[in-house]
Simulated scan of single mutants.
Amino acid sequence: MPTSPNRWEHSLPRALPAAWAHAAQRDMSDQLAALGKRLDEREEPIVPEPERVFRALSVDPDRVRVVIIGQDPYPNPSHASGLAFSIPRGVSPLPPSAKNIRTELHSDLGLPVGQHLDLDSWAQQGVLLLNRHLTTAAGQPAAHTDLGWSEITNWLIDRVVDASPQAVAILWGRHARRLAGRMGPLGVIESAHPSPLSAHRGFFGSQPFSRANALLSERGVSAIDWRLH
């Protein structure tokens, strides 16, 4: 089902939160409009909704303590929330990647994980949950990898490096790990993606949460409370 004419083209530049937009050059607004135009031309349902695309950016760039980079939104519309890897509370069953994150969280820190993977409490502490590509087609993983999102997220990551050089980056999966060289002074933790296709090849046992807190401590930054509140 096609989107309404110019829906994305008009909404994307306006949706960039003020704390990020003030640093954007004119060409960034033009890039967002051009990307939105390409989305408007797609004859498919798109996730997440336009108003959720930049939800991860509720964390101001100078408040980022940890940035977790994913690949693209969950293709299931009920799962895609605008926060990388997060699932809205009350949605079940959880997708396999979410289950694997919960498993590693418990294994790493011994925390009770309850029944959900709503990561709002992480975002509220300065965890930037950013996908490499911020939209996809409903039911089609990685459908928008060629639309220009990489240039946008490169710019967002550069803002984090400039504004929060003491932060730590957690890079899960091949697409995220390509960004290691872009992280400058940030502490970097890399592993396989939590997808069931790769979790047993380096995600399980990688201890990203305890390692991130150790790096934050070394940098004089308070630890993240990784509990799923």
Score class of each variant (00 low, 15 high):
176 A>L: 05
215 L>N: 00
116 H>I: 07
21 A>F: 03
117 L>A: 10
208 P>L: 02
112 P>M: 14
27 D>C: 07
21 A>D: 14
130 L>I: 10
66 V>A: 03
194 P>L: 04
167 A>D: 09
98 A>P: 04
15 A>M: 12
78 S>P: 00
68 I>C: 05
223 A>M: 06
222 S>M: 08
198 S>W: 11
71 Q>E: 15
96 P>L: 14
4 S>P: 11
26 R>E: 15
106 H>K: 15
134 L>K: 05
157 I>P: 00
137 A>H: 07
143 A>G: 07
5 P>C: 06
199 A>H: 02
124 Q>H: 12
21 A>N: 10
76 N>P: 00
202 G>P: 04
167 A>N: 08
105 L>S: 02
10 H>K: 13
109 L>R: 10
149 W>C: 09
82 G>D: 03
30 D>K: 13
92 S>Y: 11
198 S>I: 01
206 S>T: 12
219 R>S: 08
211 R>Y: 02
187 G>E: 04
215 L>Y: 00
198 S>H: 13
211 R>S: 15
138 A>W: 05
154 N>K: 15
167 A>V: 10
115 Q>F: 13
127 V>T: 03
51 E>F: 05
174 R>E: 14
123 A>M: 14
33 A>M: 04
181 G>E: 10
184 G>E: 10
175 H>C: 06
40 D>S: 02
197 L>T: 12
227 R>F: 04
105 L>W: 04
219 R>A: 14
75 P>Y: 00
82 G>W: 00
